[in-house]
Design a protein around this nucleic acid. Sequence first.
DNA 1: GCCAACGTTGGC
DNA 2: GCCAACGTTGGC
Length: 152
Amino acid sequence: MKQYWLMKSEPEEFSIDSLKKVGTEPWTGVRNYQARNFMMKSMKVGDGVLFYHSNCEVPGVAGLAEVASEAYPDPTQFKKKSDYYDPASKPEEPRWWLVDVAFKRKFKRVVSLEQLRGEAEALGEFALLQRGNRLSVLPVTAAQYAHILSLE
DNA sequence: GCCAACGTTGGC
DNA sequence: GCCAACGTTGGC
């Protein structure tokens, strides 16, 4: 059964337009175990991804992507010059894993967080809308995915 | 194993 | 830029 996810990115760092330009991007820099576990243990190639813009003027879902690889170790954890360098991680036992994400399409307009809050009842239990949530990779049900698409 | 201090996320 | 919420670290 196809699974769905929401993945956050700060558009100033990497936006839906950036993804469109490169086509496929390794989802580097996740340093949260829960988010890592979703990528490492649950994601399958072809899973649907809602590409979410965070920390910006209009936070919200900006387009669609899909999981494009099996999980593999995040190379940035071993690069001393990287912001994501983790001196505690060993190459023989990598701590951080990622998947590649491929561009599908950009929404005509962002389905904003504000809009999603207005649909909270229809969306049901949704980690994104929970108070204080900071998870950057989180699961979305097929029904939530379909509903969000209908809001574009 | 507790918990205070600290760092980060992300909406506003 | 502020700050609430949360995760992690490290001393004890």
